[in-house]
Design a protein around this nucleic acid. Structure first.
Lengths: 245, 245
DNA sequence: GTAACATGCTAACATAAGTTATTGTAGGCG
DNA sequence: CGCCTACAATAACTTATGTTAGCATGTTAC
């Protein structure tokens, strides 16, 4: 099952036809990108909506003097802004972290969805609202949390999101971000990211080595990061949230 | 003309019927709130989409230990998340700054829009995309800009947005935020906000007194805040952006 | 096999911003 | 009228985080 379908089914129960429609769209117009390359650049005219099939990517913005901020991460199953093509130009860039494959989704695809696939349309709205909530949470993270809280929070978020897409084990996941990436995402310097990771290691909250992240005690990491998963809205109608699902 | 219509017409040309539809919705189910009260609280079930008719409000989030972050401001003409009612609970609170009047927009209203008012539907998508872009810009602001850049940037953003809704003069606007509000929005301490404002005053970039903000030299303030208005997407098809419009 | 480079780690030092506290000022209201 | 209270201003001091630099390790390319 595709990461997208797997993720959306955490919120909406899809029919076989819904799933087929999504999988068909994800198999057309596929492109691949090498690590550390741009999928789209600030200033360009947005043409298609991108669905991440495999690999990690990020949105980033850059100031004239070179300061860079990663404003969000894209994991497999994530979709960049719906209807982005109504805008004249991109206000940010999208770049890859690892090798990435994407499917380009056309305006017509979304017309088809809203005409004949109401559950998928709802699921896409859920995706949009959750993305907005994540962005607000990042604002909170950068504005109020200390360096170690911030790092713990980011690691929790990524782990939860990977698990949602079926990409994490019980307490570990593949983790391709460098300390420089973490610095750009948290607004900290590289040196301080290193210090902060050492601190989390010393508290036995994380094991991070060779592109692999292990979280021996997720509960403690969550409380270290003042992490509350409510903003991910993992609550399908009529179902209680199970932390291990 | 309502602030909402005025704002949306910066992006999409609306028909008389479109405008009538919007104005009718804005006249029904109106509620008013005193300054410094909550319109909605984190944890509640979202029921309606709120349209701000008059006054200033904000979204905020709070940590268990009391740290508060304002994650966005609502100005007259702003709409809180479309389709928010598909979620089970609010992940943030909405509170007023000044006295505020809002109109509650129902699910049925949006059904009507998507069935028969395509230009309004597009305009609402534009609103959604711009709100997302603003939230990303705040992430950038908190992550990379220094205190004075950050403050200058925020002031520019608010001034541009007010002007869009027809609420600013040539180089001034009403400005009800306290220094404590600015602190919660910028992630700075109140004392440092004060220092930062003094600095902007000393550079003759702002005059801020008695709930009134004057920007004697917007160009210089923009460059002090590394402000680039592209993320507000003020670019109606076929029209060049005019900085004074 | 070695050069070249990206990444991670650490130390020493610098600084932007936070904290606590005090004072001033202007409204609101009994 | 005078007492509150909210807001703004400023000083003195502390601290979290940034900066610069250097070294170690591992990976890739030739």
């Amino acid at each position: 099952m595709s990461h997208l379908v797997r993720k959306l089914e955490n919120f909406v129960r899809l029919s076989a036809a819904d799933r087929m429609m999504l999988n068909r769209a994800a198999a057309q117009r596929v492109r691949t990108f090498a690590p550390r390359t741009d999928i789209a650049r600030e200033g360009e005219k947005p043409k298609d909506v991108h669905l991440i099939l495999n690999g990690w990517a990020c949105r980033y913005k850059q100031l004239e003097d070179g300061r860079r901020q990663i404003v969000s991460f894209f994991l497999p199953g994530d979709i960049c802004d719906l209807n982005i093509f109504i805008l004249r130009e991109m206000d940010h860039s999208i770049g890859t972290i690892t090798a990435v494959s994407i499917a380009d989704l056309s305006r017509e695809f979304f017309d088809e969805i809203s005409a004949g696939y109401p559950r998928v349309a709802t699921a896409f709205w859920w995706e949009t609202l959750v993305n907005a909530a994540i962005q607000r949470e990042w604002t909170m993270n950068l504005g109020q949390r200390t360096a170690s809280e911030r790092m713990a929070h980011l690691l929790c978020e990524l782990f939860f999101r990977l698990r949602l897409a079926g990409l994490a084990d019980e307490n570990s996941c593949s983790f391709p971000l460098t300390q420089a990436d973490l610095a750009e995402a948290t607004g900290l310097s590289k040196v301080h990211v290193n210090r902060t990771l050492q601190e989390l290691r010393a508290s036995n909250l994380i094991v991070l080595k060779g592109k692999m992240l292990v979280l021996p005690d997720l509960e403690r990491l969550m409380s270290a990061g003042l992490f509350n998963a409510n903003y991910l809205h993992l609550d399908r109608e009529g179902r209680q949230l199970d932390a291990n699902e």
